[in-house]
């Protein structure tokens, strides 16, 4: 089970009224390399991985949900005060006609989230390599999102999230090293 702390992992500030950015941020909400996919991927893989790295998957998977909440807050702040006319002008009317101002698990192009975005091969090395790839793709997505806004406060939150992807990738790489085991020993193959 989880214990919920009713605060964000890192403060989310949005200073520029930019409805279109909400559409782009959906890539990290319900996209293939988004936070939902990350959280579900790690929390699901942890059952069938050696004990030494279960805790890592548990902790990172949990943190991804904290990131999901931050992205949701950014999107909500950008859309909650937009009129139907402003939404249309920003090119988000395709989202509006289905969801009003609700968030939804789809990517920036409106493609709904699907479980085929994530994998669980059961092979520890294959799964950890997939996790490393996912972190690097999420890091890149944050870079492209930062490129698409000139709001320094929004950029600040996105930069924090990008840095977390860097560290998560590092931890998964360390997990691979742990599972390789033999490196530190003198062993004749």
């Amino acid at each position: 089970m989880w214990i919920y702390e009713k605060k964000l992992q890192y403060p989310v500030r949005v200073s520029k009224c930019d409805v279109r950015m909400a559409k782009l941020l959906h890539e990290q909400y319900g996209g293939a390399d988004g936070e939902l996919a990350a959280a579900l991927r790690y929390l699901n893989q942890r059952y069938s991985i050696p004990d030494k790295v279960v805790g890592l998957l548990n902790d990172i998977g949990t943190e991804e949900f904290a990131h999901l909440e931050m992205i949701a807050t950014m999107i909500y702040k950008l859309t909650k005060d937009a009129t139907p006319e402003q939404i249309r002008a920003a090119g988000v009317d395709d989202h509006y006609v289905n969801h009003d101002r609700a968030l939804f698990y789809h990517n920036a192009s409106g493609v709904p989230w699907t479980a085929s975005y994530i994998q669980a091969k059961g092979d520890p090395i294959a799964d950890l390599y997939e996790d490393i790839a996912a972190e690097e793709k999420a890091r890149a997505t944050y870079q492209w999102l930062i490129d698409q806004t000139d709001d320094p406060d929004l950029k600040d939150g996105l930069k924090f999230l990008r840095e977390r992807e860097v560290i998560h990738s590092l931890r998964f790489r360390e997990a691979v090293e742990i599972l390789k085991e033999d490196q530190a020993q003198k062993k004749i193959f």
Binding site: V14, S15, C17, K77, K80, D81
Partner: peptide
């Protein structure tokens, strides 16, 4: 107090 858009 710090919302980006004028509030509804």
């Amino acid at each position: 107090p710090c919302d980006p858009c004028p509030p509804i």
